[in-house]
Structure formats: C-alpha cells, structure tokens
Nucleic acid binder design. Structure first.
Lengths: 365, 365
DNA sequence: TACACCCGCGTTAGCGCAAACATCAGGCCA
DNA sequence: TGGCCTGATGTTTGCGCTAACGCGGGTGTA
C-alpha cells in the first residue's frame, strides 16, 4: 500500500537466466532463493543449457569430463528438473492413471499395488482416480480427470460392465488397458482366469463326493462375478449335476452371512462355493450359528485367498489370485500400447486352488 | 538471425495459431487432427486466447455472452486444457503425493481412500508412491519421486519412525503432513488417538473382571503400535494391575497365531488385546486349537474394526478407527499448509470401542 | 462538458525444457 | 593439402498457458 521503501527495485526480478542462486543484494526480506533451473546449472558448469539437458536424457552424447562437471553443478545447486516443462515439450508425462472402484477391497488394492510396483521399476508414477459408483458416467469422469492431468495411459481396474462403456468415449489411440474385463473391448486386457478358478474349486468339491455345489455369487454386473458363476456352472454341467440358482451377494461378509442363513436351513446343502473370501467368512458364521459344522456337515470354499484365510474357523479352502502378476501384466500391456502396439491382446494368469480345512468329503447320510 | 535455408517448406507444421482443426489439405496420411489448443478455441469463438483462459479461471470476468461463445467453441473442439502448460506458468499442479507402506493393508488403504475422496472434492488428483521397506532412505526416495513430479504437497501415511527422518530432508516450507506419526515433527499431523483407543479397550476388559490384560503388539518401530502399547500399559497401571510383557507381532494373522499358541499354554491368561484385527484372528485360531474357548475362558479384543470383524468366530470386540475422517483431516491440513499456514497443528480423532462377543466376564476359577 | 473510473477484452512476455538445426574442431583418406 | 565425415557442443525456436499491463468505451460524479 504505502510507498515501497526500496529506492530502485532495479531488475532484481531478473531477465531470467544467469542471475544464479545469489538472489539477495541484502534485501530486507528475500528468504527463498528460488529453485535452480537448467540455465543455472549450465552457467555454473560453464556449458550451455542444451548440454545439461543432454546429460539428463542421453548422457552418452556428452564427453565424460563435461558430464562430470554438469553433474557436480547439479548436485551443488540441488537441481531438480521441472517435469511440467518437460511434459510440455515432449508430450510424455511418465504418469499412469489407475481407475478403480473401492481401493479398500483386497483385490483392487492388491492390483493397484502391483501396478505401482511395476511402474516404479520403470520410472513411472501412478495417479489414482477412484469412483464411488460403477456407472458409465462416473467412470468417464474418472478417465476425464486423469486425462486432464495428461497421463500417458490408463488402467481401469473396475472389473465391471460399466468400465467397458466408460472407455468407449476414449479416442481409439489413447492408451488404455483393462484389468479383468470381458473380451468385447477394443483394449488390451490383463485378467485372472476366474472361470478356470471357479471350475477348479467346484471340481474339487465334487471330487469329495458332494452331489452338487451351491454358489454365493458376487454382483452379477461385475465381470469377475459372472465369470466365476460361469466356471462353477460349467463344472457342474460337465458332470451332469443339478445346478442350483446362484445366490446373489455383494462381496461383503454380511451378504455371505445372509445367504448363509438360507443355505443353512436347507439340509440338502453340503457344499458351498462363495465368490470371495469375505462372503465365505459370513457363510461360516451363519452355518456355525445354525449348528451346522464345517467341514463335517457342510464344505465351504472361497475365492481370493486373502492373507487371513488360513486363520478362519476353519481355515478356508480358497482360490489364490496372483494379483501382483496381474498388475505387472497390466502395466506391461499399457507400456506396449504407449509405445505404439496395436491390437487388443489378452493376457491371462491362472489362479491356484489352495485346499485347507473348510472342505471335506461329503457326509454319509 | 541467419537466413533460414528452407525455401518455404510451406506452413504445414503450422506457425501455431489459427490453423484450426482442419489439418488436412488432402494430405496422403494425416489421420489425427492434433488436439485443439487454446488458440484454436479463441479463433473459433472470435476472441483472444486470454479470454479463453479467463473463462476457465475467472469466468465472472467475462461477459456472459462471450463466455457462452467460448464454452460452445470448447465443446465443439473437444478442447481440454493442457495441464503441463498451466503448471509451468502457475507453479501449482493440483496434484498431491501420498507416500505409503503397503497399500494392501486395511488401514493405509482406507486412509488413502479417504484422502483421495477429499482431494477429488477439491479438484485435486492424488499420486501414490509406495515404499517396500520402511527406512529413511526409501521414504526419501519416495518423497523425491513425488517432488520430481511437481506435486503441491505430500501426505506420508507410513506411521513409522522412519517417516519422520525421511521428512527431515524436505525444505521447511515444502507442504507435507503426516498421518499418525509422533509429535516430534515440524509438520502437521492427522492421527487417530491410538492411546485412547487402547486404554478404552483395556479398561473394558478390566471392567469385565479380568485381573490383567495381555497384549500382542505391532512392530515396536511403528508409532501406532507403540502408542497402543502405551495406552494399554497406562490403563493397567491406573488400576494397579500387573503389566505383562507385550508380545511382539508384525500385524499379520500369522504372528497373532504364533503368539496365541504361547498365550494359550498359560492358564493365567484370560484376556488378550491384539493391536490389530488380523492378529486377533490368528489369536482366535490358536486359542481354539488349544481348546480354550472364547469368550468363556479367554476374552480377545482387536483394533481397527475391519468390515469382517463381526463375522469372526466369535464376532470380535474391536476399536473402530475412522480412517475416512483421518484422510479428510490430512487433506485439509495439507491444503491449509499449501495455502501458507504455518505451524504444525495436530488433529486427532477418537476411535470407538465396538463390543461384540469375543469379550466376556472373567471366568470363575 | 469534463474527468475519473471500471469493465471487458487484447497484447506482450515469459515459465523451463528439448527438437531441430548450426557450428566447430579434429581425424581420416586421397 | 583439401575435402569430408564424425562427435561434441551451441543457438534458435516454440510447446500451451497465464501474469501483468494496456486500451477503448461506457458510467458516475461534479
């Protein structure tokens, strides 16, 4: 407001360039000596800015001695490249976006973790955009937010039908991959073979003598859920067994518990396959409360093999999903896509049946 | 300066500006009409680029009619602002970094989710940098990676002593907040009051008549773990009870199981407080295997209140942590810090004891 | 009518970096 | 000796955007 006491502000603000780090002419309150930029490093090292840039991007093109001087100058000034400027000129941000539903769930969280680890190894960062509802609209929003941050590509983890629709709005050459979605999409897919896993666990139960296997499914609009239903059904039909109606769940232990109360009341039920471990946990509790012993009277199996599964009561037979691998695959596919690869390959990994104590031979009548 | 050697290579490459979207003069292979930039929008709307910028950043300074034309032009060209250019000139990226240990664990994952939701509401994005080991070095690396991406600020979730050290390298004015760390740091902290939670659950067990309470702790170098130990100890000492040595765990169900086998062998043990729910689950299994009934013979309580806790066998008494709220607080603190707030406030939220069936009165001898 | 003022918009000047070209020295071969 | 390549470095330019200021015309006040 008042007249600035400084007589001639001079060109302290500098015409840019070579002012160097020495900002203070004894100014009364100029505490922060603004971060060093490439030009500062160049000046200190006695080279041009372009050489500094080369040291960063293609060191082999700079004579070792010069390179050494530049690196020393960088260290001295604590220089850190400005990524925004780099992105502006190269068009590449080295940042990937991940769209996911609830990153609190074990599956998505593990996949995200796998992606992040793979990305870290390749000098990329990961930005997240979670969606609170699985609608085409919210997925599109999330994709949009990531795009506006100029990510180089996007991984969509929500293994949900809406994910597909949400991606249709993307320009066809925008790099995107999906984790776990169906194959009706023009983008690469990294997925666990849910169908094979479900078949495997169902066959395991049948091999123990059970006449058929009941199924507590995930939400039908989740692709994982419907594929697990398909695998379970296929295994039953291959053996000519009765296929009970699958009971709908929502992945939560609570829904497993609620369906479990119904199943517990039916003496026909001797084997149940839950589409994930929390629902299996709910099932176990419902059966226990109803006085039906597991595995003596009823066998229960889950899917995911969460780290806690061995400590359930009883320890849970489950299907282990190699989430880390899926994340790695997703990352690889995305990088190939960014590098210009065409087509929509599908990379599948096999889950593994882990037999524990919650499944046993069919009780004699 | 020098005469450009090129005769006139035409202006196919464009002198920038007003070429508009119509890139093709019938070129043989020009499929993609490069994304629209501000100038294109300006031309189409018949205004200057600056006005377009204003429509984006301070719409109230543009006459509604003009604004309408500009918005229409944006829509027509599917214009999306280039964030890199904006960041370059403003110095603000609207991106926050989150450093976390294992985003697969329920606590960190939930906190991250809370932060992300809060950030989304404020038009910010979140980038993650997970660390695979909790050393000063790896934390510094993670912070460095985020900084090089020009995030506006950083939230460190690893509630670990090393997090503190990892932050000391930061320039003092770089916005950072910590979730859950001790108060010996010059940065704001958002935290659950672990000590109060542990006291509460311990008092609950004492009030049921137990002479004392055993404790399976988390890794001692985790701040959460040591605060829970402190709360448990304080509650026992306040009542003049014997304070058994805490048993070290590593948060995993397995470690809970292993300590549980030791505890189960000691008939003195009638009440155990585990520092998190997975360890409590392991405990439950160990006690069950040893034939000690819960809660009739031994009471067990956990911490976290994971969604599955009500379905354990038996349903677990636990301490619910309001992770979402912590995430929100962390975000708020960070935004205040970015806005220039000084000091290192500490915002604490109270956890809540949830009593279920795993705790009961001390058995009569 | 005169002057100050504000509103709405345009102009100019970079932000920090790398692509594309320019330059320059030295070595090689004829 | 000259021409030409090769390797190391410098110069110019512009990526897309916004801060800062400039400018014209309308409104308010005297």
């Amino acid at each position: 407001m008042t007249a600035p006491p400084a007589p001639p502000p001079a060109d302290a603000a500098g015409t840019g360039g070579s002012t160097g780090g020495s900002a203070g002419m004894g100014g009364p309150s100029a505490p922060r000596p603004r971060a060093a930029v490439m030009e500062d490093v160049a000046t200190l090292a006695g080279v041009s800015a372009m050489t500094v840039s080369r040291v960063l991007n293609s060191p082999e093109k700079v004579r070792p001695e010069t390179r050494g001087r530049v690196l020393a100058a960088m260290r001295e000034l604590d220089y850190r490249p400005n990524s925004a400027a780099r992105v502006l000129v190269t068009g590449r941000s080295q940042v990937l976006g991940v769209v996911s539903f609830d990153t609190t769930l074990y599956g998505p969280a593990s996949t995200l973790y796998g992606i992040e680890r793979a990305a870290r190894g390749a000098e990329h960062m990961v930005s997240i955009a979670s969606v609170s509802s699985l609608t085409r609209r919210s997925i599109q929003d999330a994709v949009e937010r990531l795009r506006s941050q100029s990510v180089d590509g996007i991984v969509v983890i929500s293994p949900h039908r809406s994910a597909a629709d949400g991606l249709r709005g993307l320009p066809p050459d925008f790099p995107a991959v999906v984790v776990g979605a169906g194959d009706d999409l023009p983008v690469p897919v990294a997925a666990v073979d849910h169908r094979a896993g479900a078949e495997r666990v169902t066959r395991h139960l049948l091999s123990l003598g059970h006449r058929t296997v009941w199924h507590v499914a995930g939400p039908i609009d989740w692709i994982d859920a419907s594929e697990r239903v398909a695998g379970w059904r296929a295994a039953l039909e291959a053996e000519g067994r009765r296929v009970p109606d699958p009971l709908p769940g929502d992945w939560s232990a609570r829904s497993g518990y609620e369906q479990g109360r119904l199943l517990a009341a039916d003496p026909e039920v001797t084997a149940v396959f839950a589409a994930n471990d929390p629902m299996a946990l709910g099932l176990l509790r419902a059966l226990r409360e109803a006085g039906r012993r597991v595995p003596e009277e009823v066998s229960v199996a889950g899917f995911d093999d969460v780290p806690e599964a061995p400590y359930f009561a009883p320890p849970l037979t489950s299907v282990r999903q190699p989430f880390g691998e899926v994340g790695r695959y997703a990352f690889q596919l995305l990088m190939e896509r960014i590098a210009g690869a065409e087509g929509a390959p599908r990379r599948t990994v096999e889950p593994e049946l882990v037999v524990r104590e919650s499944t046993a031979v069919m009780p004699a009548r």
